[in-house]
Design a binder for these strands. Structure first.
Lengths: 163, 163
DNA sequence: ACTAAATAGTACATTTATATAATATCTATA
DNA sequence: TATAGATATTATATAAATGTACTATTTAGT
């Protein structure tokens, strides 16, 4: 899977059979897919010892990075890129583990405010060293200047995707 | 979701609370996640009228791009980035729709050879124009030179991910 | 104030993905 | 040729994600 050569060969065959096929964008799309899968799997592997999976970790980190320390389920869904229906299940699981807490919002009674509990905070404190190590390893093949350039290009690419 | 600014704000807060957090790799990881999700959703939207979803389309395209025209389930799993257990269900669905066919391999009776049927080929012929349009649109914000550069950096990034 | 439309959240049913283990076949070596 | 180990595939059970529909609340227009 980390070997991309066979994928490129398949793209070459595809373009031969269907010359209009936009090879470069297609290559980018397949690269993104490969990388995403790899990142997802590696994160899950790192997180497993801590009893949570990647989506759950993401939710915790969204709350960790929230300026106010709280987010509503729909904000969380948007931030984490999950469907809102999915958030209910994931936050239920995190509530069951006492990693986050639900509180009714004062100014809009439709809303619920989610926040990290001390236990949730403690869990993050315990696992962040491993996550930092992982992120460091994942970026190791790129010089800082390349990381900056890649970030810039990815943002530009993202901006071309409709929403 | 296509607005990445709030994500960057959260990363800033995260780094303030936890200075060792590797901000640049983390930004790359979140960008990849956002882009992947967007690509996945847009592809599904385009494919829906044709009665297949993105994973199924991917399998068909792997076969389409295969030099020999056939692949075993495990080759297909590797190529499409699906877990091998998942391939059984997906290929079952495609077989039910008569888009692919299964044949026992002559030289290794453990193996099965999967190939596109004429109907599968016809379906691809009918949907590829829409897919090409989509891919063209998705790459439109990047100049060719930028696409080349992005491709190069993504490959380098991928090479740093263990397998 | 009253009503229509919009928003927030969740429940439920369905679809999709994963992990585990079972079965069959092949390969290598004693 | 026996047999241990590796490989290919699938069955089954479990988990995760999604779509749809529903309730409650708020907002905006009359």
């Amino acid at each position: 899977m980390a070997d991309f050569a066979t994928t490129e060969q398949r793209l070459a065959v595809t373009c031969r059979r269907y010359p209009a096929f936009p090879r470069r964008p297609a290559t980018l799309v397949r690269l993104i897919k490969h990388i995403h899968k790899q990142l997802h799997d590696e994160a899950n592997l790192t997180l497993r010892p801590y009893g949570i999976n990647h989506p759950q970790y993401n939710l915790l980190m969204m709350l960790y990075g929230s300026p106010s320390g709280t987010m509503s389920p729909s904000e969380l869904a948007e931030a984490a890129g999950e469907k809102s229906a999915n958030i209910t299940r994931l936050t239920n699981e995190l509530c069951d583990k006492r990693l986050i807490a639900r509180h009714a919002s004062a100014d809009d009674r439709r809303k619920i405010e989610l926040s990290l509990t001390p236990q949730g905070q403690a869990l993050l404190d315990s696992l962040l060293p491993d996550i930092c190590t992982l992120l460091g390893k994942q970026g190791r093949h790129l010089k800082v200047s390349e990381q900056v350039q890649l970030e810039k290009l990815l943002k530009k690419f993202l901006s071309g995707l409709a929403d």
